[in-house]
Computed example of a mutant assay.
Amino acid sequence: MEFYQLYGSEELIKQDSISKAFGIELSQRKVIAFVGAGGKTTSVHHLAKELVSLGKRVIITTTTHMFLPTEHGVLKEDKEMLLSMLNLSGIAVVGTPCGDGKMAKVSDSFYEWMKTVSDYILVEADGSKRLPIKVPDKHEPVLPKDTDYVVVLVGLTCLSKPLLECCHRWQMAMEILNCEPTHEVEPGDVAKLVAEGYCNKLMIPFRVILNQCESMEEREKAVEIINNLKELKISIDNVAFGNYILS
Rank of each mutant, 00 (worst) to 15 (best):
H183W: 10
E180P: 06
K221V: 04
M172A: 15
E165W: 09
L210V: 07
L68Q: 04
K201Y: 11
P205W: 03
M172F: 14
L47Q: 00
D189E: 04
K49I: 14
T62A: 11
I236G: 06
A240G: 10
K49Q: 13
M66Q: 05
K134W: 03
S109E: 06
I32M: 05
S17G: 10
D126P: 08
V94G: 05
L122D: 03
K105D: 11
E214W: 12
L26S: 06
C179V: 10
S160G: 15
M103S: 04
V52M: 03
I236T: 09
A92M: 04
R169G: 12
W170D: 03
L6K: 03
C166D: 01
Y7M: 13
W170Y: 15
Y149A: 02
K138F: 12
L159F: 08
Y198K: 02
A173N: 00
E175Q: 14
M174W: 02
K161H: 13
W113N: 06
P97Q: 05
M174V: 11
P181M: 13
E180W: 09
K129W: 09
F3I: 07
L86T: 03
I24F: 08
I133R: 01
P162S: 12
M114V: 08
L164I: 12
E140T: 08
P144S: 14
S247I: 12
V93K: 00
E2R: 13
G36F: 09
E71A: 14
L54I: 08
G38H: 03
I234R: 01
P136A: 14
S89C: 12
Y4M: 10
G242N: 01
A104N: 05
S160Y: 13
L54N: 07
T41P: 08
T42Q: 03
K76M: 14
Q28H: 10
V154Y: 02
R169D: 06
T157V: 13
Y120W: 05
H45P: 07
